[in-house]
Design a protein around this nucleic acid. Structure first.
Length: 417
DNA sequence: AGGTATTCACATGAAACTATTCTCTGAGTTAGG
DNA sequence: TAACTCAGAGAATAGTTTCATGTGAATACCTGT
């Protein structure tokens, strides 16, 4: 061990150098003024106290829910809007104010918020009912019981006292897609089974056509009130970012072009305020890492690339093995071929599985996996007909080159055999 | 030349199947009074 | 007789296979001029 050397220097000397350079780095980090005041104001979980450009929707929702304060049942509400248009934040804001008002007036109002995106939490009928039961203090097993029993447990717990419950179902379109619309029917009917408590539902969705596709019984009861959240335009996004930046950044930390640049980017992405805020935060982090005194436009550019790369790599890493194998097949084909079809991908994929001696999925399943990769934004594809030569999907990689290079390296290491 | 039928290579949808994880229930077994 | 053990039935779920049907344009074939 004593003789171990790196680049000609004894290990002890190396360590001393490393330690002192790390110390210097930490010292200069501490001495430097942070660009952020409270970074939390830009994080995903932050609930702002004001929601500019959503006053109309908030007032309307508050008016719809207000009867709950008198112990009356409120109308069910359906909230539509593209991602990042403030639907969830607005609903949460109104509900928490409602709960506060109920506390001071001594009324019992319970708001339950469930998001169908939480996989293995509230994405099937059984799990949704189980979650609702849990929220009202009844513990139920993760599996093993008939769904009807779980509903009974939930209804009994809810009906144990006189109260108004408001159930917020976020990303309700996912729920319907995975579990069918029967569960919505069961939920909208629950007031007929309750004797003391009253319940109403706020459904939140990105899918503007969802309500049209539901069973007419559900449509009429769930869509008693409808609220639309239009996308923010660039000017509104600038306003939102400016207000948040005031809380988040130290004075003078942002150069002039930053907010318009972030707003313009998000306006292109269907007015998604969440993306704009993410971009602003990561731009700030990038600037800090570069030891810059100010966030500059080039920091926004590299933040943009970092966000996309991180999203893609995270999505790929969490994929099951078979899905990774399909993606790697696409990447291999794409490296040599301009046009890649489902059949080509399946051929390469099958070859890989045979060589590795692993189970080979059917082409039907692989076709679905390709669709899933598309939904995640890793690839893009379009179904084209080549006339007598059949109908197939042409597949392209859609993430930036940097992200794809990194992903290829990761997958190559995994499948190289 | 123009119209119609055929063909290909999948896409897409629905149903069925498999494996896993879990609860409930009732029958059999055991221990203690 | 109460407490415990254990096997079997039943339920939910994810992931998959199997089967059936749909799709759209290039190409082949047919018909009339």
């Amino acid at each position: 061990m004593e003789n171990l050397q790196l680049s000609g220097q004894p290990l002890g000397v190396q360590n001393d150098n490393l330690q002192s350079s790390l110390q210097e780095m930490f010292d200069s980090f501490l001495k430097r003024q942070s660009l952020f005041l409270t970074k939390d104001a830009l994080q995903a979980g932050y609930t702002p106290t004001e929601l500019p450009h959503r006053e109309q929707q908030i007032t309307r929702l508050a008016k719809i829910l207000a009867p709950a304060l008198r112990g009356e049942q409120t109308s069910n509400v359906f909230i539509y809007g593209k991602p990042g248009t403030g639907k969830t934040v607005a609903a949460r804001l109104v509900c928490s104010e409602l709960e506060r008002a109920a506390d001071t007036s001594g009324r019992a109002i319970d708001v339950v918020y469930l998001n169908a995106k939480m996989r293995r939490v509230a994405d099937t009928e059984y799990r949704l009912a189980a979650q609702l039961a849990e929220q009202f203090g009844v513990s139920v097993p993760a599996t093993g019981l008939p769904t009807k029993k779980i509903y009974d447990a939930f209804f009994n717990a809810l009906d144990a006292e006189k109260r108004v419950a408001i159930i917020v179902l976020d990303e309700i379109d996912r729920l319907v897609r995975r579990a069918g619309d029967e569960l919505l029917y069961n939920l909208t009917r629950m007031n007929s089974e309750l004797r003391r408590a009253r319940a109403s539902i706020i459904g939140i969705t990105n899918d503007l056509t969802l309500l049209e596709n539901l069973d007419s019984r559900i449509r009429s009861s769930l869509g008693e009130e409808e609220l639309v959240f239009p996308p923010y335009n660039a000017v509104q996004l600038q306003d939102i970012l400016t207000r948040r930046a005031l809380h988040a950044f130290a004075p003078g930390a942002l150069s002039q072009e930053i907010i318009p640049k972030c707003a313009a980017y998000a306006a292109r992405e269907h007015g998604d305020a969440r993306r704009a805020l993410d971009l602003l935060r990561v731009s700030g982090e990038t600037a800090e890492r570069c030891a810059s005194q100010q966030v500059l436009p080039e920091h926004v550019d590299s933040a943009l690339e970092k966000l996309e790369t991180d999203n893609v790599l995270e999505a790929i890493k969490t994929q099951p093995q078979q899905s990774k194998a399909v993606l790697y097949s696409i990447m291999r084909l794409k490296a040599s071929n301009a046009e890649v079809s489902t059949g080509d991908v399946y051929g390469v994929y099958r070859g890989m599985c045979e060589r590795a001696g692993t189970h080979t999925l059917t082409q039907r399943r692989v076709s679905d996996l390709i669709s899933e990769l598309e939904v995640m934004g890793i690839i893009s594809s379009s179904v084209i007909s080549k006339g007598r030569y059949g109908r197939t999907r042409t597949i392209n990689l859609s993430a930036n080159q940097g992200a794809m290079d990194k992903a290829t390296r990761i997958l190559k290491a995994e499948f190289a055999c």
